[in-house]
């Protein structure tokens, strides 16, 4: 059973001048942790707003929990949890006041669903009298999540919850999402960080309003059409320039301490030839190895 369904959704702005969402269709199953992966401006937020009944699509249909996003918007608003891109909290209210307020807005109390937010809220408890505007990015994010969960939603929409949050808080946040998934909540999350894609069960890669690929992270990686190699040497900047101008190399992108490359002729001869060329160019500590692509490799491949 699919909890979220999109059929050929189109959304344009400025009277059709800007096409934010271009014929997007996908489904999110009950209890699934689904990731929408793409850069800023890819159309993620528009999709979230259409699903949370905040925007009307120009064409196409969509439903959440079987309710139509246009006709049955009231029913959807009763059942979903939504955390917009900006941590939408009242900065001048304390942690506790924010939580209590959102609980009453959703016709419930903090105690009623406390077990659901307990694991997250205990981390916030020491600061419960602090104004939410004075919290760090990571803490704001946790509080916003608590507020979105307080009425035990069936589907949780998280629009870029980890943007601008440090690596440690991000990791903690994904742990929390795993916990929530176990409670049976369907989660749709968007992120510009490619490394977070592997933490989702299924992902959709989105660019310029169109979906490039939808599958499990493993399957997407498997679909990478070529053999991918990682190469490094003592001077990475010079190496990059060299690889780019090398006719043997089909693509080359830097990935941290390695450059990821694919060859025009994908065989062992090419590899040996490259090493030889690099040695002739007086690179030292040359290392070339075959690797499994990351989601980011796949994303770049799909973009070109």
């Amino acid at each position: 059973m699919a909890d979220v369904v999109l059929n050929n959704i189109v959304k344009t702005y400025n009277k059709g001048e800007v096409k934010a969402v271009n014929n997007v269709s996908f489904e999110v199953n009950k209890g699934e942790l689904f990731g929408l992966i793409g850069a800023d401006g890819a159309g993620k937020t528009s999709i979230f707003r259409i699903l949370t009944t905040l925007l009307l699509p120009n064409s196409g249909t969509a439903s959440v929990n079987g309710f139509d996003v246009v006709k049955d918007y009231k029913a959807i608003r009763k059942n979903v949890g939504y955390m917009p891109g900006k941590f939408s909290l009242y900065q001048d209210l304390s942690v506790e006041e924010n939580l209590n307020f959102f609980a009453t807005v959703f016709n419930t109390t903090v105690t009623e669903n406390y077990d659901l937010v307990k694991n997250i809220y205990v981390q916030l408890e020491p600061f419960k009298n602090r104004r939410s505007g004075k919290l760090s990015g990571g803490m704001k994010q946790k509080l916003a999540l608590c507020c979105a969960l307080i009425h035990r939603p069936t589907v949780l929409f998280l629009d870029e919850p980890t943007t601008g949050v440090d690596a440690v808080s991000r990791r903690e946040f994904w742990e929390m999402l795993k916990g929530l998934k176990q409670q049976g909540i369907t989660i749709l999350v968007s992120t510009p960080y490619m490394d977070e894609a592997t933490l989702c069960e299924r992902i959709a890669l989105i660019q310029n309003g169109s979906i490039m690929s939808i599958d499990t992270p493993d399957e997407i990686v498997k679909q990478f059409p070529e053999n991918l190699f990682a190469v490094r040497a003592d001077n990475m900047s010079r190496l990059l320039n060299m690889l780019r101008s090398n006719k043997q190399i089909k693509s080359c992108f830097s990935f941290g301490d390695f450059h990821h490359i694919t060859f025009q002729d994908d065989n062992e001869l090419s590899q040996n030839k490259l090493i030889q060329t690099l040695q002739e160019a007086r690179f030292k500590d040359i290392e070339l190895k075959h690797i499994t692509p990351t989601i980011e490799d796949c994303f770049i491949k799909l973009m070109n």
């Binding site: 608003r77 939504y82 917009p84 939408s88 959102f102 807005v105 959703f106």
Partner: peptide, 8 residues
């Protein structure tokens, strides 16, 4: 946004 996406 959050208030709109609520039963309120």
């Amino acid at each position: 946004e959050v208030l709109l996406v609520s039963p309120f």
